[in-house]
Simulated assay, not measured.
Amino acid sequence: MPVDNVRLSQPAKDRLTYLKRTTGITQWNVLCRWALLLSLKDPSTPLVKDIVTDSNVEMTWKTFAGQHGDVYLALLKQRCAAVGQEVSDENVARMLTVHLHRGIGYLGADKQMATIEGLVDAVVAL
């Protein structure tokens, strides 16, 4: 299993705390799933930088991914292959961290996404 635990940076936690208040979605994992999909939807490569996962928000892969863990894992592996990275456990874990944090940044940057309707529109819009 390439990912055992999912950890967030303090800035990511702060953005999600705001979103929890404004959307009414109370679970970290639900918001993180939205963030991951939003980032994976963007075909550009995230700016690669070191992300310090220094917050107290941590969840197991099972909690993060729920019953669709195989789908999320396949999407991450596909992205690794698409950008020419070896599909290794380390690269898949890094891809998750980078895309999760970029997606959280997207969620926190757009005021429209402060509602459930805005989140749905952002992820499913063509």
Rank of each mutant, 00 (worst) to 15 (best):
A114Y: 10
D89G: 10
Q67K: 15
L37Y: 11
T63V: 13
G105F: 02
G24I: 06
Q112D: 13
L73A: 12
T26A: 13
E58A: 14
L36N: 02
L126I: 12
L8S: 12
P43M: 12
L96N: 02
F64E: 03
V3D: 08
V124T: 15
Y18T: 13
G108T: 04
Y72L: 15
K20Q: 15
K62V: 09
L126C: 07
L126W: 09
W28Q: 00
L40V: 13
A82D: 15
A65T: 01
K41W: 09
C80M: 05
S9R: 08
T23W: 00
T22M: 08
N5V: 11
N29R: 10
Q112G: 02
T63G: 00
P2F: 07
D110F: 08
A109F: 05
K13A: 14
T97H: 01
D50L: 11
A82L: 11
R102C: 05
G118A: 11
D121Y: 08
E90R: 12
H68V: 13
S88F: 01
D54Q: 03
A125L: 06
A109R: 10
S9D: 13
T45I: 15
G105Q: 08
H68F: 13
S39E: 02
W61A: 07
L47W: 12
T53C: 12
V71M: 14
D50G: 05
S9C: 06
V83K: 12
E90P: 03
Y72E: 08
S9N: 07
N91M: 03
D50Y: 08
L8V: 11
L19P: 12
P2W: 06
G69R: 01
I51Y: 09
R94L: 11
T22Y: 02
